[in-house]
């Protein structure tokens, strides 16, 4: 099942790149590298979430930082 998810995610990202790549000018090197970098970050994050779905997220991090203040509103 996990392999199917990985395959699906990769297909989506490849389709995205195929749609976007021809629209970029040859001169736009910086844009292309930004596109590739963000796509790779997305792919890595997706892989992490496929294998560790219960990984603590940004919400837990923020919650840990602001806990003393958040307690004011605890009910």
């Amino acid at each position: 099942m996990k392999w199917a998810a990985i395959l699906g995610i990769t297909v989506i990202l490849v389709l995205m790149a195929m749609y976007e790549w021809p629209k970029m000018d040859k001169k736009m090197k910086k844009e292309k590298s930004a596109f590739v970098a963000i796509t790779i970050i997305g792919w890595l994050l997706a892989m992490l979430l496929v294998f560790f779905p219960d990984m603590p997220g940004p919400t837990q991090l923020v919650d840990a930082i602001y806990k003393p203040l958040g307690k004011l509103l605890e009910k």
Binding site: M16, E31, A34, I38, I41, G42, L45, L49
Partner: peptide
């Protein structure tokens, strides 16, 4: 960058992940 349009779709994908991860 000189244009933001190429970033729309990859950032959308990351947004989708963040919404599941939130």
């Amino acid at each position: 960058l000189s244009d933001y349009r190429p970033l729309v779709l990859p950032i959308g994908f990351i947004l989708l992940l963040f919404s599941l991860w939130a």
